[in-house]
Design a protein around this nucleic acid. Structure first.
Lengths: 338, 338
DNA sequence: TGGGTTTGATAAACCGGTATAGCTCCTGCA
DNA sequence: TGCAGGAGCTATACCGGTTTATCAAACCCA
C-alpha cells in the first residue's frame, strides 16, 4: 500500500476513523485496550499524518517562519545567523515543527511574505530579527493576527513576545573594561542606525563616556558590511587624535577593521585595541585573536522557538524572556594604550 | 470577511465552485468573459489559495526542502551556504514555492528527515548538498520516490538530477598556475575524504603532479574545520622541505592557514603562496588578500532550483546541468617562490 | 432537419484528517 | 425497577480546494 491513511488503520482495526484519530492523538474517547491496539497497527503500517490534511481540519500547520531581510552579501559571513538558526531548529524539532526560512532584500518584501504566509495559512507563527525603531512589522503582524516572537528587542508596550539580552549592560562592560585599561579615546563602529539594538548600544556608550572620563567616544553607524567597517576605520585612524580603542558592533566589521589597522601599519594591540560585539570562529581565526563579547546564540534561538510555541499555544499571553548576559572574552587584541 | 474561500467567490459571481477553480487556475472549462469576471472578484476579495487545502486535493505542496548535514560550528563561517540559499530561493520565488531548511548533525538524521517529509507530504522535492562517495541518500530518495537534485556532483549512472561545476578543471587551473609561477612543492589541504568533490580534487592534483614536474604534491584531508586546517598547516610548515604553496579546499581553512603562517613567521606570499578553493568576503578581508577560485554560488543555487522544479514537473527526465567553470581570482597571497 | 461534437457550466465526489452529535451499553443509586 | 450519567464508539459533517461525471445549449456539416 502506498500511503496508509487513518481509514486503512480503522478498517484493519475494525473501528471507525474517529476512534483512530482519538487514539493517535492521545485524547479521550477510546479505551486503553483499543488505543493500544490501534497504535500498534498504525506502527505496523508505518502510518504518518498527512500534514496538509491535518492542517486543513485543525487550523495549525506545524510550521513556523523566519524571514531575514538583509542582502545576501552582508549575510554570508555572519556566523550569527547560522547559530541562531540551528538553535531555533533544535527548539522546534522537539515538537517536530518545521521551519520556513526566507532571505529577502528589504522590510517591504518581508512584510509581503508575512501577508502571503498568513493568507495562505503556511505558518503558525514567525520569528522576527533585527528589530528597528518604530518597526512597521509589529503593527502588520498584529493586524494579521500572526503569533510572533521578537529576537533581541525588549517587546516594550505589551506588543509582541520577545527574547532578549541586555545590550546596554554588555556595552557598558566593554567600555568600562577599556577605560580601566587606560583608554580615553574610544570609538564605536555601530551597525545600521535604525536597528533598536544599535540605538541601545550607542546610548550606552554616550551615557558612560562622561562617567569614565573619556575624551572622545563617537559612535559611527554603518550598514554592517565589512566594506563600511573598513572605510570608517580608515577614517578614524587617519585623524590626528586617533582613537586608541575601537568597539565594533559585529565580528565581521571588527575583522575588517583589523585588516585596515594592519594595512596602515597600526599595531594591534600596542597602538590600537579592538573589541568585537559578537563572538565567532572568525574572531578566533585572526592574528591577533580578537577580544569579543560572547553570547550563546544557539541557546538564544532555542529559547525563541520555545517562546514562539508557547505564544502559538496561547496567543493572549505576552512572554518577554530575558537571556543570560553576554560575557567579554578577552583575547589578544586588547591591551593598555602605549 | 475573515478569509474568502472559492465558495465565497462562487456565490458572489453566481457560478459554481468548480468554475471558480477552473478560472483561477487558468484551465479550460469557462468562457473568457466568465473567467475575467471571476478573476476580478477574486482580486477584489483578495483571495489567496489555502495551501493545505490545495495540497490535499492536488498532490503538491509548493514547497521544497533542503537539509544540510554539518555541525553548526563548521557551518557558521561558510559564506557558501548563505549564497547558495539565496540563489535557491530566488529560483523558487518565481514560482512562489517555499523552502524548508533544516540543519542536522549527520547523514542518518538527514535521511530520517527525508522519510518524514515524504510520508507527511511536506515537500515536493529536495536539494542535496555535499555528495559523498557511495552516498546512501541517493538510494533512499529513489526508494521514497522523492524528486531531488544534487548540487555539485555529476549524477553519474542516471541516478538523480544534478547541477555541477567541473572541480577537476578548476583544480588543474590552480596547480598549473602555481607551477607556472615556479612552485615545485605544492601541498593540498583537502576537505572530508568521503565527499565526492574532495576525491575529484585530490585526483586532479595527483594526476597533474608528474606532468608539471612537481617534487611533492600531498593531499591531506580534514573535516573542513578551521582547527584542522590550522593543525595541518602547522605540520606542513614544520617540515624540513616545507611546501612553497598550499591550496586549501575552503576559504575558512585558507584563512586559518594564513593565520598559522603569520604565527610561525612564514611570510605570505614571499615564502608561502596560499590559494583558496572558494571565494568570499572572507578571503578579501585578509591581509594579504587571498587568491581564490571564484564561483557564482548564487547562480548555482538558482539553477539548482530550476532543475528541481523541472524534475518535479516531469520526474522521468534526469537533467544534468553543467554550470560555468569557476575562475581563479588572483590577489596578494600568491607569488613566485623565493 | 437531424445526429454528433464542442463549449460552458454544474453538482458531487474526493483528498485525509479533525470535531461533534448521537447512539449503545453498562454502572450506580434511589 | 427505573433512570441518570458516563464511558466507548460510530456516523457524519467539515475544512477549502481539485477533479470528474454529467448535462444543456450551441454549433457543425451532410
Amino acid at each position: 500500500m502506498a500511503r496508509p491513511t487513518i481509514a486503512d488503520i480503522a478498517s484493519r482495526a475494525g473501528v471507525s476513523k474517529g476512534a483512530v484519530s482519538f487514539a493517535l492523538n492521545g485524547r479521550p474517547g477510546v479505551s486503553d485496550a483499543t488505543r493500544e491496539r490501534i497504535l500498534k497497527i498504525a506502527e505496523q503500517m508505518s502510518w504518518r499524518p498527512h500534514s496538509a490534511a491535518r492542517a486543513l481540519g485543525a487550523s495549525r500547520v506545524d510550521s513556523v517562519g523566519m524571514v531575514i531581510a538583509r542582502p545576501a552579501r552582508t549575510l554570508g559571513v555572519e556566523p550569527f545567523f547560522a547559530h541562531l538558526l540551528s538553535g531555533v531548529q533544535s527548539g522546534l524539532s522537539a515538537e517536530s515543527i518545521s521551519l520556513q526560512l526566507l532571505i529577502v532584500e528589504d522590510t517591504a518584501a518581508e512584510i509581503e511574505v508575512y501577508r502571503r504566509w498568513a493568507s495562505e495559512h503556511r505558518v503558525d507563527g514567525v520569528i522576527l530579527v533585527d528589530l528597528t525603531v518604530k518597526d512597521p512589522r509589529i503593527d502588520e503582524l498584529k493586524a494579521l493576527e500572526l503569533p510572533a516572537v521578537v529576537i533581541g528587542g525588549r517587546g516594550g508596550k505589551g506588543a509582541l513576545a520577545s527574547v532578549w539580552a541586555d545590550d546596554r549592560d554588555a556595552m557598558l562592560a566593554i567600555v568600562e573594561y577599556l577605560a580601566a585599561l587606560g583608554h580615553r579615546r574610544i570609538a564605536h563602529v555601530a551597525g545600521t542606525p535604525n536597528f533598536q539594538h544599535t540605538q541601545r548600544r550607542i546610548k550606552a556608550v554616550r551615557d558612560a563616556a562622561p562617567r569614565l572620563g573619556l575624551l572622545d567616544a563617537p559612535s559611527l553607524t554603518t550598514d554592517f558590511s565589512d566594506a563600511e567597517g573598513a572605510a570608517i576605520t580608515r577614517k578614524l585612524l587617519s585623524q590626528p587624535d586617533r582613537p586608541t580603542a575601537i568597539v565594533y558592533d559585529s565580528d565581521v566589521m571588527a575583522v575588517a577593521g583589523l585588516g585596515v589597522a594592519m594595512e596602515m601599519g597600526v599595531a594591534v594591540p600596542a597602538e590600537l585595541s579592538i573589541v568585537a560585539f559578537d563572538d565567532s570562529t572568525l574572531t578566533q581565526l585572526m592574528h591577533p585573536a580578537l577580544t569579543a563579547l560572547s553570547r550563546d546564540t544557539f541557546d538564544f534561538g532555542r529559547q525563541a522557538a520555545e517562546v514562539l510555541l508557547d505564544t502559538i499555544a496561547d496567543p493572549t499571553q505576552v512572554i518577554n524572556r530575558r537571556t543570560p548576559d553576554p560575557v567579554l572574552t578577552v583575547r589578544e587584541s586588547t591591551a593598555p594604550p602605549s
